[in-house]
Every structure is written in C-alpha cells, then in structure tokens.
Design a protein around this nucleic acid. Structure first.
Lengths: 347, 347
DNA sequence: AGCGCGGATTGAAGCGATTCAGTCTGCCAC
DNA sequence: GTGGCAGACTGAATCGCTTCAATCCGCGCT
C-alpha cells in the first residue's frame, strides 16, 4: 500500500541522477545519453511513475485538453462529430472534455468558464445564438475557439453548406422528372432552415422553372417524426380529393415528391403517406436530410443528404491546434440516393 | 491587449489585501468579512479573473474531472449513458473527458494512463475483456474506478440485468401464445449474449415448457442489420416449404415469433421476413433489444427491451464521487411493447 | 601538456493557488 | 488599566514539474 504517487524526485534518487535529467527523458529525450535514458525509463517502470499533468501544466502553461460544447450529447447527430474531434485530438495526445449546453445560456457560460479555468488548449462550441460576447471574453483570455456548424465573423468556424445540400436534393428530384415538389421545412427562424429553403429555390431556378409553381412549402415547429407526419398531412390536405385506382382508394397527392428538412421529419412523412395508401417511391418520392444511420435501414431506404460530420470535427480541431489562418471552412454535403427517390428502380 | 492571465496576486494588490484573503474568498468565504469579500469579488470581475485549476489541483491534489472510456463514441447506444454521466457530474461542477477504446487494448491503456496523468477524480470504463490488471494499477494509484455494463469482482461496477431483460421478452411472447420462438443471438462468447440466452431459457422453464422444443436458436457473428437478415434467413431455411395462402405464395415460417439480440439485428430480421412476404406481427412477432430511438419510429413499431442507460451513467458517477460501499449495482431493464409483437392489435 | 569544445548533467528558481502558523485589532470583562 | 479572546487578515512555504545557466567531463588538436 504505497500511500503517495511517485514523484519525479523519487525516480531521480533511485536512478542516481538529478530531477532535471529525469524531466529531460520525458521532454527532451534526445538530450539524454542512451544509457541513462534507458536506465531511467526502467526505473520509472519499476516505480510505476505517472507524471503529474497539473504540475506540468502549471509550469509550461499548456494543457492537453480541449473543451467541447454541443447542444445535446444524447443527440446521435453529434456522435460522429465527437468522433471526428476525438480522432484528430488523439494524434496530439490530447483529450476532450464534452458537455451539453441544452441551449441554455447559463449552462453554456458556466461550462465556458470551467473550461477556461482548466486551461484548455481551445474550445469547440456549437452555438445556438449569437455568442460573439462570449467569444470576445475567450479572446482576451487567449483561448482559441472554433464554432461548429456556424458561420461567424468574429471567430473561426466550420460548417456544412446547407444551401448546396438542399440544391443537390432538389436537383436530384427534378432530374427524376418531378415538377411538383413538397418541402417540409423546420422552424423558419433557424439559419439552416433558411439556407436549405434558399438552396431548394436556387435549384429550381437553375432549371429555368418557376419556384412558386414547383415548390409547395410547409413548415413545422419541431424536427420530430410527429411534426413530419403533421407536415405531410398538411401537404396532402392542400391537395384535396381522393381517387380510386384499380381496387384501392388513394388520396390524390398534390406533389410527386417531398423534400424533408431532416430524416426524422422524413420518417414521419413516410408514415403519413403510408397511412393514406400512397407508395414510396412509386406515388411519391421522399428525400431527407442528415443521413442518420437508420436512413439506409428503413423498409424503403431513404435518400438523404449526408453531412461530413467526422471531417467537420477533425478540421475544427486542426484549426484549433495549428492556429490556421482560415477564418471559416465550409464543407460540401453529399446526396446519398436510395430507393425512396428512385421511381424507376422499384420492384 | 492584456498579455497574461490575471493571477490571484493582481487581484490581491488591486484590492489592497493579501493573496491569502483572496484565496479565502474562493475557498472559505465564511472566513472573510462581508465588506472585503464583496470588494474582492468586484475586483475579480473588473479584472476578469479566472482561477487556474492546474495550480489549485497541484496544491490540493484533487481535480474536477472524470475520465470516461466507452467502446465507440459514435455508437448511439452510449449517448444516453454519456448524458447520464454528464448530468450527475454537473451537480458537482465536474467535467468529463470521454474517449473511445475501439476495443483496442493499447488505446485503452493509453487513455487510462493519460487520465491518470491528468489526475482525474475517477474513471468510468466500459471494458471489453478482463481488465482486472488495469484496475489493479489504478488501485495502486488510488484512482477510483467504476466499470460500466460489466460485472467485476475486483472493482465497482454497474450493469443492466441481461437475464431479466431476455426473460421479460420471452415471457411476453409466451403470454401472446407463441410456442415456437426463434432466437437470433449474437456472438456466444460475449457475456451479455450468454446471459440473454440464459434468461430466455429461464422464462420458458418458468412456464413449465420444454426449452428445446420452444426455442430455436441461431447465432450471428456481428450485431448488424445484415447479420440479422442472415440470421432470419437461416431460421426460415430451417423451416422448409412454401405455402400458398389465398393469392400469395408465402414461406412457411418455422416459428411464430423471433427474439433478436438487438434492434439492429431485429431490423435485419424484419427485412428478411418482408422479403418472404411474411407480415409482422400477424405471421411473425418480433422483439428487439436496446430500444434504440428508431425502434418506435419504424413502419411497424418495434417491441424492444429498454435499458436505463441514463440511470446507469448517473449511478456510476454517484458511486465514484461518494465512494459508495456498494460493489455492484444492477439495473432492471424494461420491456417496451409495441405493434411488432401484438398480434391482436393489428388493423 | 594544455586548451577548447560540445555533449551530458546538475540544481535551484519559479509557475499560481492554498494553507496555516502567526500577527493585528478591537472589544469586553474584571 | 490590563488581560484575554475571537475574528480578520497576512505571507511564506508548499505542491511536482520544467527550464536554463552553470558545471563537469572526455576527447581531439596544437
């Protein structure tokens, strides 16, 4: 029962050298002769020496940790992001401290302060409103910060191009011949929703078509399956009558395709379509957003816009650690085409 | 552009007191007179003072961080767990450092060492094999550790009762009248798989039935949708013939219900059943495990065994921080019944 | 033999907060 | 008037590591 942690001094004594040499083995091995180095390393192993990072940090003023604030850790959307961050940090032997802001400014401030006290190398923050005030504070503390999934004029930031993502989705539907396309948008006050709406319109214009004629937009309050179902119901209601084809009565769908702001919403939309006896993709094509892991596993695999979250996290850390001059890095999303939007591959 | 961080000394000077008093404001406010305390706090705010945690930690030998190692951070299964950990830590103003072992012993060791260097208050580890060796090492370093989702004789641990989870699932199917039940198990060398198999058998015995007659087991190598599909295919193949009912040709299913080792596997099983024209739950009932968020969102909402991961994380931290005497805490899972196993609620 | 040089090693200073033995002050009791 | 005491405050020592000026040593060169 050894009561205390082994210090560098014990190692030095046992190895018959000074503490400076032991420290050099740890930090400047090339400055120590082969013989003493291996000897000291052996002693370290014997004594089970573990270097105290807080003492080191106090002295050199640099830590091995990075703080990460996401909106909600339990949201699978952030998982891949976190993984990208971790993978890049591992290269520099760094660790990440993660927490959730829950979109609560107080929580966020509290965590930022805790991180500052810890002397993190930098912070990665997924802001949920204008955080320029906080950033300034961090600036005066000389703590580099990169905003995730945001565009900032004051700080470094990385994000995925929502305009382009929506454009790809709509272009794909137009390519498939659709000329009446529903768009179930999320809360219009959210930046990503605005941008995706813009991207959708842009794609239609690029095809020389009239946006007002092609796009039927409806917005829902939350990005959940229930909202998606509700949104789809609204779209269907705007269509009107019921038609009887063959033996089955079917709702007449006012659109031949639906672009959903997110995969959850798409799942809800699929549910409502099915409830009305409409078949995907034969009657209506559906495209989602985010490409959550289940998109491909669904009964009708869902076409979706994939965001390179792993790269996003990786690059954010890269910017943080290397102090890149780049102010903002934007990633291109990628449309993953699956059965839910491919009318000709049915059967 | 203030070049350096404000130290406690600056605050003391500016406030016309000694560093000791400033420190007391931070750590023993009751020992400082009302007047000076508020004055010092004001000065701190003015100067934007942020206390250096590494210096504090060096002196008092106690940090505000906890290390967490999960198998793979990008697995949604761990999200809720992480959230439970975070929520409990927040109460004590602690932060968590998270990382993924990827089931690689070297990575795991590396992270454990990093955590030890950081002087974490404790560690939460999701082991993937026998880690008693590592734990012993941590023991000599006096770093408390709680194993997650594991049962250990040497260390503290928390887990969910797999035997009971499987028992609930099978009991439910027996209640529904099923007497030939398929079981798509995972790799039989994994402890949870063994335990669930045991629980399944136990439930059948409790009903006074013959396990060999009721349960048709098949095992798959990985816990993926593809494996699930494959496993279901095997089950169906063991049945043999094809029957023609009404207008449709259908495979004869040798079982009337299937219990899957996990929801991904269940998704694969559903896919295969559908491919054979078998309807869930009319022809075959399906039960999964884990109750992933999508279980309820599926075309046929999936009955699944829910594990209280949030509580698990919360309790693990509780044990860590309060040094509970309890060696092991086991949680009860809960069967969430949905349409996929309720034959009588169809239509 | 003496000099110079460079690589290896030493050891004390210092990072910033906390602690604690001690001082200082004011006040009450006798 | 003096002693005693509690409450408020002080400041030097300390935590373990890194750093760097200084020292030491061995060797080749003149």
């Amino acid at each position: 029962m050894t009561a205390k942690r082994v210090r560098i001094r014990e190692v030095a004594e046992r190895a018959g050298v000074s503490t400076g040499t032991v420290s050099n083995v740890l930090n400047h091995p090339e400055a120590v002769s082969e013989t003493t180095r291996t000897h000291i390393l052996a002693v370290m192993r014997d004594l089970n020496f573990v270097r105290d990072a807080s003492a080191r940090q106090l002295r050199v003023g640099e830590s091995q940790t990075v703080g990460v604030i996401v909106r909600d850790l339990s949201n699978p959307f952030y998982m891949e992001l976190a993984r990208g961050i971790e993978d890049r940090l591992a290269q520099d032997n760094c660790l990440m401290m993660v927490c959730s802001s829950d979109e609560d400014p107080d929580r966020e401030s509290r965590y930022i302060r805790l991180f500052a006290e810890q002397g993190v190398r930098g912070m990665l923050i997924t802001p949920f409103r204008d955080t320029s005030e906080q950033i300034e504070m961090l600036d005066t503390l000389h703590i580099p910060t990169v905003l995730l999934d945001a565009l900032s004029t004051t700080a470094q930031s990385v994000s995925v191009d929502h305009v382009d993502g929506a454009r790809q989705a709509i272009r794909h539907l137009l390519d498939q011949g659709h000329r009446r396309i529903g768009f179930i948008n999320g809360p219009p006050e959210l930046r990503p929703c605005q941008e995706r709406a813009a991207g959708a319109a842009q794609a239609i214009e690029e095809y020389g078509l009239d946006v007002a004629e092609v796009l039927v937009t409806t917005a829902v309050g939350t990005m959940s399956t229930d909202s998606g179902q509700e949104g789809m119901a609204k779209l269907l209601a705007s269509g009107g009558a019921t038609r009887t084809t063959g033996l089955v009565a079917r709702a007449v769908c006012p659109v031949t395709a639906v672009f959903c702001i997110n995969d959850f919403v798409a799942i809800g939309a699929l549910r409502e379509l099915r409830r009305h006896g409409l078949v995907v993709p034969t009657d209506v094509a559906v495209v989602g957003y985010d490409d959550i892991i289940f998109a491909r596993e669904m009964m009708v695999p869902l076409t979706s816009v994939r965001q390179p979250m792993h790269d996003l996290g990786w690059t954010a850390v890269e910017m943080l650690l290397t102090g890149q001059p780049a102010k903002h890095v934007s990633f291109q999303p990628q449309l993953i085409v699956r059965a839910s939007s491919l009318a000709d591959q049915r059967g």
